[in-house]
Amino acid sequence: MTHREFKAFVVEERDGTFIREIKSKSTSDLPEGDVLVKVYYSSLNYKDALSATGNKGVTKKYPHTPGIDAVGIVVTSKTDKFKIDDKVIVTSYDLGMNTSGGFGQYISVPEAWVVKLPKNLTMKEAMMFGTAGLTAGISVVRLFETVKPEDGQIAVSGATGGVGSLSVSILRKLGYSIAAITGKETAKAYLENLGAETIVLRKDFEAMDKKPLLRPLYAGGIDTVGGVILENIIKSINAMGVVTCCGNVASPKLDLTVYPFILKGVALIGIDSQNYPLDYRELVWDKLAKDWKPDHLADNCTEITLHELNEKINLMLDGKLKGRTVVNMQS
């Protein structure tokens, strides 16, 4: 096989410090895989930012190329399922964690990690969603199994982040009323434009009464941050309501009684998009490409080049990014 030279965003450890640089690599440097994909777009996620800082809980060995999302065109394939020139999406599993990821212009991955790009979705749109959109979509699927738009308002935490903002957009598309919880006091207009009807400041939501149960406010919730925010969402849910949780940036701990669960029948559902079954992934991607696609998807997205990635990682770590950041890997 002819080896190809390409550019990649590489994180290296030097004397205890983690350095980020764009380097030239070869496809011979990539792991053995069923499918070699030329990456056209990737996207920036919080897990990528952690990997870029040397977080050994995300990435064990360096040098490493992060990027848990990628979309592109198949260059070589050892499987009948994918043919040369197929447009494909690769998200989650070990991509960008301990397997060279989407911040490189080529990736080599197992067949099981790959999903064909739906016909109604462009490559750039796929990365406007990325793992964040997949996570939001799975959360909405699980919520929709029990809670319908007519049942009441849905609380969405971390609403300016990737998963939160896309959850707001998808829920609005489906006719739900949304209460967006955010730590950014300047985000009101942005969140209202996405479709949120109520804006709740994080500091106010965290300061709610510490009682085991609170006044019912919401029919359901999508939590992306954990900690006190998740506790108060659970305590504020209507009887038989559902809350999904997918993040722990605030805290992995919960200080709760069992009362919301045994007195009100509230259900708490964990969302693990990293290893979600392929059939469900294909279902969610199909919905995102069709009736769940927000009308103004691009309004929630900023496109950057590989050379701008380092700056955006720093902004993400400082909590200063809104919406989705798509990386044009061929610019």
Results as ranks from 00 to 15, higher is better:
Tyr41Glu: 06
Ala132Asp: 12
Val140Tyr: 03
Phe205Arg: 10
Lys184His: 12
Asn300Arg: 09
Gly133Gln: 08
Ile89His: 12
Lys210Gly: 10
Ser100His: 11
Ala126Asn: 03
Ser165Trp: 06
Gly183Ser: 10
Leu194Pro: 11
Leu309Thr: 09
Val249His: 02
Leu30Phe: 10
Ile313Gln: 01
Gln105Val: 03
Asp209Thr: 10
Ser51Ala: 15
Thr131Ile: 05
Ser331Glu: 15
Val243Cys: 04
Asp86Ile: 13
Ala267Phe: 07
Pro277Lys: 09
Arg4Asn: 13
Met97Arg: 15
Lys38Leu: 11
Glu311Tyr: 12
Lys290Asn: 14
Gln153Ile: 14
Ala70Asn: 12
Val90Asp: 00
Leu166Ile: 13
Ala112Phe: 06
Val58Glu: 13
Asp209Phe: 01
Gly67Leu: 08
Ile262Gly: 01
Val74Ile: 09
Leu256Ser: 00
Gly102Ala: 03
Thr244Pro: 01
Glu308Tyr: 07
Gly183Tyr: 06
Leu143Gln: 04
Gly226Thr: 07
Ile181Arg: 14
Ile73Arg: 15
Gln153Asp: 00
Trp292Gly: 06
Ile170Gln: 02
Glu231Phe: 04
Ser92Asn: 12
Met240Leu: 14
Lys184Leu: 07
Gly101Ser: 00
Asn232Trp: 00
Glu5Arg: 09
Ile154Asn: 13
Ala189Phe: 09
Pro260Thr: 00
Met127Glu: 13
Ala126Ile: 00
Thr131Lys: 05
Cys246Leu: 00
Glu192Phe: 00
Lys188Glu: 15
Thr257Pro: 13
Met127Gln: 12
Gly162Cys: 13
Ser100Thr: 14
Val71His: 04
Gly164Ile: 05
Cys246Ser: 09
Ala219Asn: 10
Asn300Asp: 02
Glu13Ile: 08
